[in-house]
Deep mutational scan, measured.
Amino acid sequence: SEFQINEQVLASWSDSRFYPAKVTAVNKDGTYTVKFYDGVVQTVKHIHVKA
Rank of each mutant, 00 (worst) to 15 (best):
S1Q: 14
F3R: 05
D29R: 00
K50A: 08
K28L: 11
V26C: 07
P20T: 02
V26R: 06
Y37S: 11
V23S: 01
A25Y: 05
K22H: 10
V26H: 05
Q8E: 15
S12Y: 14
K28S: 14
K35R: 11
S12N: 06
S14N: 15
Y37P: 08
D29S: 00
G30L: 03
E2D: 10
A21W: 01
K22N: 06
E7R: 00
T31M: 03
Y19P: 01
Q4V: 09
D38P: 04
F3D: 02
L10T: 04
S14F: 11
N6E: 07
Q42H: 11
Y37Q: 10
F3A: 04
R17P: 12
K22S: 08
F18L: 09
S14A: 11
T43H: 07
D29K: 00
D29G: 02
H46G: 15
K22V: 15
S16G: 15
G39I: 07
K35M: 15
D38N: 15
F36P: 00
Y32Q: 03
H48E: 10
Q42I: 15
Y37I: 11
K50I: 14
Y32W: 05
D38G: 07
V40E: 13
K45W: 07
T33D: 13
V23Q: 00
F3P: 04
V9T: 03
S1H: 14
V41D: 06
V34G: 01
S12R: 15
Q4L: 10
P20F: 10
H48S: 08
K45Y: 09
S1P: 14
A51Q: 11
V49T: 06
E7A: 05
Y32L: 11
T43I: 12
V49W: 02
W13Y: 15
T43K: 10
G39C: 08
P20L: 07
W13M: 13
V49C: 07
N27A: 01
G39L: 06
D38V: 06
E2I: 11
S14T: 12
A21V: 05
V34P: 02
V34T: 01
R17E: 13
Q42N: 08
K28H: 12
A51K: 15
Y19E: 07
T43F: 06
Q4S: 10
A51H: 12
T43Q: 08
G39K: 04
H48P: 03
K45H: 12
Q8W: 15
V40I: 11
A11N: 02
F3T: 06
W13V: 12
L10I: 07
W13T: 11
V9M: 04
D15H: 02
S14I: 14
T31P: 07
E2F: 10
H46R: 15
V26K: 07
T24N: 03
K50F: 07
T43Y: 04
Q4H: 11
Q42V: 15
A51E: 08
K35N: 06
A51T: 10
V23N: 01
N6L: 08
Y19I: 08
Y32T: 05
I47F: 10
V9S: 01
I5N: 05
H48W: 10
V41N: 05
P20R: 03
V44Y: 01
Y37E: 14
Y32K: 05
W13H: 13
H46N: 13
Q8P: 11
A51C: 09
T31V: 02
G30E: 03
K28G: 14
I47M: 11
N27F: 08
P20H: 03
S16K: 10
Y19K: 09
A11E: 03
H46I: 12
Y32D: 03
G30I: 00
V26D: 04
Q8Y: 14
F36C: 08
P20V: 05
D15F: 01
Y37C: 14
L10C: 15
S14D: 15
L10M: 10
V49P: 09
K50W: 08
L10A: 00
V26P: 01
K28W: 11
Y37A: 12
K22A: 08
T33W: 04
S1A: 11
Q4I: 07
V41S: 08
V41G: 07
R17W: 10
S16Q: 10
A11V: 15
D29W: 00
V41M: 08
N6A: 07
V26E: 01
V44D: 04
K50T: 10
A11M: 03
F36A: 01
W13Q: 12
N6P: 05
V23Y: 00
V9C: 07
H46Y: 09
T31K: 01
